[in-house]
Design a protein around this nucleic acid. Sequence first.
DNA 1: AGATACATGTAAAATGTTACATGATTTT
DNA 2: AAAATCATGTAACATTTTACATGTATCT
Lengths: 185, 185
Amino acid sequence: MALEHAILVSLAEKSASGYDLARRFDLSIGFFWRATHQQIYKVLARMETAGWVAATTVEQTGRPAKKMYVPTDDGRTELTRWTAEPTPIETVRSDFAVKVRGMRFGDRDAVLADIARQRAAHVERLAYYETDAAKRYPEPDLLTDAELPTYLVLRGGIRTERTYIEWCDEMLETLGQRTPAEEKT
Amino acid sequence: MALEHAILVSLAEKSASGYDLARRFDLSIGFFWRATHQQIYKVLARMETAGWVAATTVEQTGRPAKKMYVPTDDGRTELTRWTAEPTPIETVRSDFAVKVRGMRFGDRDAVLADIARQRAAHVERLAYYETDAAKRYPEPDLLTDAELPTYLVLRGGIRTERTYIEWCDEMLETLGQRTPAEEKT
DNA sequence: AGATACATGTAAAATGTTACATGATTTT
DNA sequence: AAAATCATGTAACATTTTACATGTATCT
């Protein structure tokens, strides 16, 4: 129900082919909404039938032809309608949190190692976001109305990553203090 | 694939009926993993067939009989195997972030109001978590090994809620400065 | 010569959501 | 008398994931 809207937002920002969208969902917008190309092609087809997007086939030299999609007036109306709707309060769904909770029934050291792995991945992601922010929005006080929303969403990503890292640190410290399992010397 | 494991963790903590589990997924463990009773009954049946859990029918006075589930040895083995497995790095999936990003194509004031609504909901949830933490873990330095994981997961919840609220504040401040739409006086 | 990027899909399986269904007891 | 809690499910539908499928062009 919501991939449609994520696609509409992305197409409203800039028209794209299914392939382009798939790559966008690996980057920028993809940090807050994941989608595979299979899913995107299917939903795009449905949206075309519904009249929310229109496609034009663009021939290219040295590359396969592509279908460029743009939102139609109906699509833009739907997008406006959707933005005006209150968003359900979301609950995180975290495999990782469940695993931490279950660590005492399993392999404690492996979970410790996993926490460190998660931390490293989020450090990397945070660095990526921060580089991106510095490059795209060097002066956050001087943003255009068009830049502001994407900037704020990126800020949310940065805050989320920092929090994740801090949480991992707290866990590693707290659990590390209690590891008498390393006296193998 | 992961609801099974969330159920196994919950049953390892304390045996339960499908109904009990459904309520747990509305509370404690449910803050990091949602599941409806329909889904739980379906998955429990599958898990029983797989031999991960075993059920006993318990008659009650003045109430319908219930099926109490416990993890079997195979279930506990599976749980251990799963905890030892590295957890995929998760990406948030946020309708709300997509909506913020799309606000310039829609109803700006409605999105502003929605941000305030989200903030209020997360303030409420944070208060709930903090009350729960103060009640269940009054002395965080003196936790048992059994309490530690649930405590740490709750800490993650508290951190997440605080971050969400701060992010909403940043958005409201930044966007509020730019609202010349209220000069209706 | 093999891998990667470009480009678009179909099909099957798993997962998750929503609607429907039933029935006793307890609380308001 | 109505609503909420306890208790368990089926059925239909929607969404998501994984596997399969194809073909050109460029890069290493």
